[in-house]
Design a binder for these strands. Structure first.
Length: 218
DNA sequence: ACCCAGGGTCATA
DNA sequence: TATGACCATGGG
């Protein structure tokens, strides 16, 4: 039993099942992944609602829309000018590669490389899509995971994105549902505990807030 | 008046 | 390789 696996079990015991992104459709997960970049999910839901209202919840329909109209629809999710371009880029990627059904046949490493070639899709967005849209057993490294792992002493804090992902994936030996749950739990925990203070008062994870930290952060 | 949110790109050193 | 500026709305 590794430190990572123990942390996963502890988070699950404290917060319980999270039911994140039950994968309504590949497209919706892809669109959500782009729109939620540095943006609260609450605002993303408004944009997704707007797209649904005009029946533009597909790559073909998005590409058919004039950029100005698309920008107006996703306006509530912020960064609407760059996200209009990024949304169009992933839609073109889906179309140019024969759609999600065909992309789903690719091995995970090739699918990740293909995703990373899309302008506006970085490491975290690519892995979120791999995990939540294509059900691949991938660990999504976000700011919450870095902070939590640093506090509990699993990492130093200077590791690269791929260093952390490889470490967690090898020490978890988990299925896609496990990584789905783990990431959701980390975000849920991160939102409910302190960001700066060493003690937030309601943290139940050893080493994070209410116990002395062994990590880089004090 | 801050700070943050389910990041990524680009210019600069 | 590693920072900093920039993108922008909405809630605490």
């Amino acid at each position: 039993m590794t430190h990572v696996s123990r942390l996963y079990r502890r988070l699950d015991a404290v917060y319980g099942p999270q039911h994140w992104w039950p994968a309504k459709s590949v497209f919706e997960v892809v669109a959500g992944a782009v729109l939620t970049q540095n943006t609260s999910w609450r605002n993303v839901e408004k944009a997704l609602f707007n797209l649904r209202q005009v029946r533009a919840m597909s790559a073909g329909r998005i590409l058919y829309l004039p950029s100005e109209e698309l920008a107006a629809l996703i306006y509530p999710s912020g960064f609407y000018r760059v996200k209009t371009q990024r949304l169009r880029a992933v839609c073109a990627w889906l179309e140019d590669n024969g759609g999600s059904r065909r992309l789903a046949l690719l091995p995970t490493d090739e699918l990740r490389a293909s995703l990373l070639s899309v302008h506006g899709v970085g490491a975290e967005t690519a892995d979120a899509i791999l995990l939540y849209a294509f059900q691949r057993p991938v660990f999504v490294v976000d700011a919450y995971a870095r902070r939590l792992f640093s506090r509990v002493g699993i990492i130093r804090g200077t590791e690269s994105y791929d260093d952390i992902r490889a470490m967690v994936e090898s020490e978890m030996d988990g299925s896609a549902p496990d990584f789905n749950e783990f990431h959701a739990l980390i975000v849920e925990h991160g939102k409910r505990t302190c960001r700066k203070k060493p003690r937030c008062g309601n943290c139940r994870i050893r080493g994070c807030c209410n116990y002395p930290s062994r990590g880089a952060e004090q």
